[in-house]
Design a protein around this nucleic acid. Sequence first.
DNA 1: GAGACCCTAACGCCGCGTGAACGTCC
DNA 2: CGGACGTTCACGCGGCGTTAGGGTCT
Lengths: 128, 128
Amino acid sequence: VGCDVTEKYYSIHEMMMMFDVSSRTIRYYEELGLIHSIERALPNQQRTFSDSQRRRLKLILRGKRLGFSLHEIKEMVDLIEHNSTGEEGKERIIAYADQKIKELEEKIQELQTTKEEILAHRQRFLDE
Amino acid sequence: VGCDVTEKYYSIHEMMMMFDVSSRTIRYYEELGLIHSIERALPNQQRTFSDSQRRRLKLILRGKRLGFSLHEIKEMVDLIEHNSTGEEGKERIIAYADQKIKELEEKIQELQTTKEEILAHRQRFLDE
DNA sequence: GAGACCCTAACGCCGCGTGAACGTCC
DNA sequence: CGGACGTTCACGCGGCGTTAGGGTCT
């Protein structure tokens, strides 16, 4: 179980419990390349996840709650962890980040508006 | 075309153009009871929408952008317009509103966090 | 009467997740 | 052996797109 003293590892069961998702969902995300388990020597061997993958799953689930598609989420998570980003394409990555930040700000704005509307109607309802 | 001087009416085509959605989508939303067209004397007659329905559609589409399901959106829109809300169930409606407001605040919080994380990684990327 | 729109009704597809059936390892 | 985990396949649902078949208006 322990290879490196400095990092924690998790079974699929622990991941399930931690985030209250099914094992099927976790495998599905791995299938899509959203998360990765430690390489297994043999097939049919149990999955093990590093702590970085635990955090990744956390990000993914947050993204889902926020209404992003798994595809968008993959882009964002890859960005945040900036894995597998070539050297020359720095500008593209920055541009993508700026784009996403703009989108996030718009969403925040719209949520704020929605909240205020509901609040207003709630109030109007109380005053009747 | 004009029945009342004080209110505007819209064809399905105008609604499409206004919000850049398909006619299928509009009919689908009506099918689900999310919006309503003016009653038609004959079947197979063209749909007409009042201004209140135009605003309703606007709310619906905002809800979609924010990642709510059409079902959730229906609840929220009904709340905001507080149509068809019985007299006695006031508390339930207020409770629902409070609940939704809490959810919205959580979403805002999570979006904020996501934004900050992307910003941080963008910065780290620049400093390299 | 040919187009350009509308209508309804039905099927199909994609994204996402689940269930069932079955093998495998300890 | 049993039970937790693995895999593969196929279905189910939401949210439409699309097509078929038929109307009306110009």
